[in-house]
Design a protein around this nucleic acid. Structure first.
Lengths: 168, 168
DNA sequence: GAGATGTGTCAACAACACTGACATAATTCG
DNA sequence: CGAATTATGTCAGTGTTGTTGACACATCTC
């Protein structure tokens, strides 16, 4: 379980380095192929990955505010606003004035938006399902544990909270 | 290891769906934070992520040809060429005419390029090392298994071959 | 010598990010 | 109430990174 601390010299360090660089490449290739899935669907509608990201998180957090989405996506409001405007114009996203705080905008998907989200995420879910099924439940647990640790500590809790429930 | 095929109805499907969407978000957040690390280093030099990717793979496959790099990065040669030109001008990458086939260009990092690669990848390796250490060896094995399965089947062998050795 | 291949380059364009500045409406607070 | 703050939207300009299409050049292969 725990490695012997007898080898801490150059040889062990080189082996560890190789393993760490392997992880870097796994992340690169997995993300490259994973994000490649929905591109065809998006291109047909003149949308890009930025739209997909917005649609995904609006679906997962219906009623999320613009500020909340900004916090997740970590882009500027000008950049997000361009995307949202297009999605609203295309009838995929609905923007409602907040009931408690009328300055806020609560974002939800329209039926058309949900249909598009379903179509796109289906490809990604299929990929994950196949990978999960092939690797087995124990591997999935390990995958989740490592991925969670890769995420910034200050964001980890928020991410996990969002993942585990649909309540705000 | 293998799931019982007794539950294939809506409830089980919904649970599975939730788990798969969780994986989608783990990939999004992990990649977002993982790629955020080197950005500060890059910005100081007027370089971007495209330069980082090129530098990374040239480091891992010294002597790689332009075509080989195109195959990995899956961008157009015009796009890659802009990046390579800049890296060569900045004295970070060396381009040598091939010895067997003089049409090819063998790319390597200069000492300055290696230093920059080291500086950037150190941040990413530190992140992975912490995650690996925190999650434990079994989790790491599971992480690797799932990540490999997420990668496109036709690329998987090539990726694994590259990962395991530095020989062409 | 003819054709295929590997590389480099020019031009035009699009997606998506950025900064900075400003406007508007609504909330909060003194 | 009035002032400051907050949430959102928008305009203008810019930069990185990707695309397509066309062409040039050197080199290899047949």
């Amino acid at each position: 379980m725990q490695g012997q601390p007898t080898l801490e010299g150059t040889a062990a360090a080189a082996i560890e380095d190789q393993a760490l660089r392997e992880a870097i490449e796994l992340l690169f290739f997995a993300y490259r192929d994973f994000t490649g899935d929905p591109d065809a669907v998006l291109a047909d509608r003149g949308l890009g990955r930025a739209h997909h990201r917005a649609i995904h998180f609006i679906r997962r957090r219906p009623g999320i505010t613009v500020a909340g989405l900004l916090d997740i996506l970590q882009v500027t409001k000008q950049s997000l606003n361009r995307v949202l405007r297009q999605l609203i114009e295309d009838g995929l996203v609905d923007s409602q004035i907040g009931k408690q705080d009328r300055r806020e905008r609560n974002l939800t998907l329209t039926p058309a938006g949900e249909a598009l989200e379903e179509e796109m995420s289906q490809l990604q879910r299929r990929r994950i399902r196949a990978a999960y099924g092939c690797a087995g439940p124990e591997a999935v647990a390990g995958f989740r544990a490592v991925m969670q640790q890769i995420i910034n500590a200050e964001d980890r809790d928020r991410v996990l909270a969002m993942i585990g429930s649909s309540a705000p």
